[in-house]
Simulated assay, not measured.
Amino acid sequence: MTTPNNRDEQLQKLRDMVKGIDIAMMTTVDEDGSLRSRPMSCNSEIEANGDVWFFTYASSHKVTEVEQQQHVNLSFADPHKQRYVSMSGAAQLVRDRQKLAELWQPQLKAWFPKELDEPDIALLKVTVEKAEYWDAPSSWLAHTISFLKAVTTGKTADTSENVKLSLK
């Protein structure tokens, strides 16, 4: 599989993959040092520099965890398309009303019934420092061709694209 060869192409591919998956498992560090993960929607949005925003309640436990240890990991997975993304960086609570309004989408009302008038509404911004993605052809034919090529050449099957990016 062809791998995007320059950083801009790789970052754009990362953004496209995240937009296509939307739900991340956000992993934080709890007070006792254990890891905790929960599903979070980024509303299919990722900034040009790779930063990701999540709506949250400022009083939620994940915010308490982030305030004590800001390093987080975001894991996105689409097993049907064989696409996976892992991003790590620093999270921070943001209460910027203008940014809240900019990122608001109607479906968020399911979690925030008072919409932007919700008193405790806030954003978690993840400034992504490192990212890695895996993208494999999901069709049976693509896997078969790669397998047959490996058998006939004696080389390992190359069925996926794996790229590591440093964003900061």
Rank of each mutant, 00 (worst) to 15 (best):
G20F: 02
I21N: 08
I21G: 08
I21C: 07
I23C: 05
I23R: 11
A24P: 08
M26H: 04
T28Y: 07
T28I: 04
D32I: 10
G33L: 07
S34H: 10
L35F: 11
S41Y: 02
S44P: 11
I46M: 15
E47L: 06
A48Y: 08
G50E: 15
F54V: 07
F54K: 08
T56I: 12
A58I: 07
S60C: 10
H61D: 14
V63N: 08
V66Q: 11
Q68T: 06
Q70W: 06
D78W: 01
P79L: 03
K81Q: 11
K81S: 05
K81E: 03
Q82P: 00
Q82H: 08
R83S: 02
Y84C: 03
S88D: 15
S88V: 10
S88A: 14
A91M: 10
A91D: 08
K99W: 05
L100N: 08
E102D: 14
W104C: 10
W104R: 10
Q105F: 00
A110V: 12
A110G: 02
P113M: 05
P113K: 02
E115C: 07
D117S: 13
E118D: 12
E118A: 08
P119V: 09
P119D: 04
D120W: 11
I121S: 06
A122W: 07
A122Q: 06
L124R: 06
E132S: 11
Y133N: 07
D135S: 14
D135C: 02
D135H: 14
S138I: 00
W140I: 14
